[in-house]
Each structure stands twice: as C-alpha cells, then as structure tokens.
Amino acid sequence: MHKRNRLFVSIALVYGLLGGLIAIVRLIDPSLIPGNVPRAHGHIMLLGFILMTIYGIALHVLPRFGGFPLYSEQMADWQLYLANAGLPLMIAGWLGWRDMLVMVGGALTYGAIVLFGLNMILTVRAGGRGRVIPVQ
C-alpha cells in the first residue's frame, strides 16, 4: 500500500479521535471550547475521518478493481496536501467565528475533492491509459 494512502488512513484516525473528543468536551461543558463546535465536529468527522478513510482506501483499491494504474500519482499527492491544508483552516474558522477562513479552507478542501474525483474518473473509465498494473 502506497505510503500516501497509508497516511490518508492514519490521519483519518487522528481526526476521528479528535472529533470525538471535541464532541465529548462540548457535551460536558459547552463553554470550554468557543465557536460553532457542532459544525466543526461534524466536518472533522465527515471531511477528516470518513472522507480521508475513503480517499486512502479508494486510491488503493479502485485502480486494482479497474485493472488500470492510478491515472496520476501527483494529483493524489496534491490531494493529500490540499485536504490537510484546507480542513484545519475550516476548523479554525468555525471555532473562531471567521467566515473568511472557512471559505479559504473550504476552497482548498474542495480542490482536493475535485482532484480525487477527476483522478478516479480518469482511472476507472474504460480504456483509461490502457497500461496494465504490473504484478505486485
């Protein structure tokens, strides 16, 4: 499994634990963490935990299911950078009531989503580049 894909899954686990922790703190005492905590929690879980797990597993397995190598390793690398640059900004924006930060972070996060989507379409589409995955 490519190191980048293992990083996606590992970072997802960290976000999952963090998002859960934030929610628990919020439940115990809402005044401990400022800002729009439910929204930050929701997106740490959905964008950080669920989506990054899907990224890591899909980048690994969809090329194999499709029978073609990943269209672009570079796009996938940039997807990792953008996703992890964007989400912390979004979280910071929600916790600090800074809509501007949410927007910038959201744009970066969205960039990762688009890179992933295009990469997957170009990989899985019948007749992609037509290279066959080497054994192993």
Binding site: M1, V9, S10, L17, G20, L21, I24, L27
Partner: peptide, 24 residues
C-alpha cells in the same frame, strides 16, 4: 448521552490501536 459518547470514543480508540500496526 455523555456515557454513550465516551463509550463510542473508546471503541474508536481501540479501532485505531488495532489498525495502526497494520499501517505502520
């Protein structure tokens, strides 16, 4: 609610503990 939240979080922590050596 709080007890449920903490138990769920513990299950997630065990999952991470199980999967980490698979990845690294």
């Amino acid at each position: 609610i709080v007890v449920g939240a903490v138990l769920t979080w513990l299950s997630l922590a065990i999952f991470a503990f199980r999967v980490w050596p698979v990845l690294w």
